[in-house]
Design a protein around this nucleic acid. Structure first.
Lengths: 110, 110
DNA sequence: TCTTTTGGCAAGTAAATACTTGCATATAGT
DNA sequence: ACTATATGCAAGTATTTACTTGCCAAAAGA
């Protein structure tokens, strides 16, 4: 609507479970090639490429070519911006405190 | 994918600019009726209803009927959960510090 | 009771989305 | 040079999504 275009691209990039899984995979282990990522998703390589293209357009993934391979890296900055713009804004201090407590209780030795 | 269904519903609810605008409207002023919300969006009432239904399914909006009116309230808890699960997880302390700094510099008298 | 206001329900449509198949290209290894 | 590997590009398709139009019902006010 009256909103920044990048914001829309970013939220749309996050709106698909396969793409969130790709982010998770890169979070667990950065710098993977396309084929390495494909092994974890139940779709063709071309499908994965298209998802990665969207993540790259949203600036959530950066790539580097090394020879015939393409390495993928996670960029968490846009997620931080979502937090600043969309979550901190809506956050009630009490609710944050509750969430913090819940997190501490869920992993007491974390 | 291997993911919780609610997570998908939540991200999909946030993936549309009109729905994010509705959240903004409720953040600015809670408890609005359907028609009040319609005044701010350039679409039919039925279209707005469908967006609100998705927000309600994602538990981002709760409603109460008062006579013939339907009042809408924002529930920020799922946003907090996104933060806990998706942003804090990907966050590098340095990047958070940068974002904080950027925010302070952008509104020096905020 | 009659009319207006507020909202619900259902079906239709146009566009966006998530894939696929098929073929082409560049790098690497033998 | 030949083959295998890693990826790119393009077009087709089925589903989902974001709307619309049209009609219906309930509550409120005259």
């Amino acid at each position: 609507m009256t909103e920044h275009h990048d914001t829309d691209v970013l939220f749309k990039a996050l709106a698909d479970a396969s793409r969130r899984k790709l982010l998770d995979l890169l979070h667990a282990h950065d710098g993977r090639t396309l084929n390495e990522l494909c092994e974890h998703l139940d779709m063709t390589r071309q499908g994965v490429t298209q998802h990665l293209d969207l993540l790259e357009a949203a600036n959530l993934v950066a790539t580097v070519r090394r020879g015939r391979e393409k390495l993928h890296f996670l960029n968490p900055v846009p997620l931080q911006e979502i937090y600043e713009r969309w979550i901190a804004k809506f956050e009630k201090p009490r609710l944050k405190a509750l969430a913090d407590l819940k997190r501490r209780m869920e992993k007491p030795n974390g």
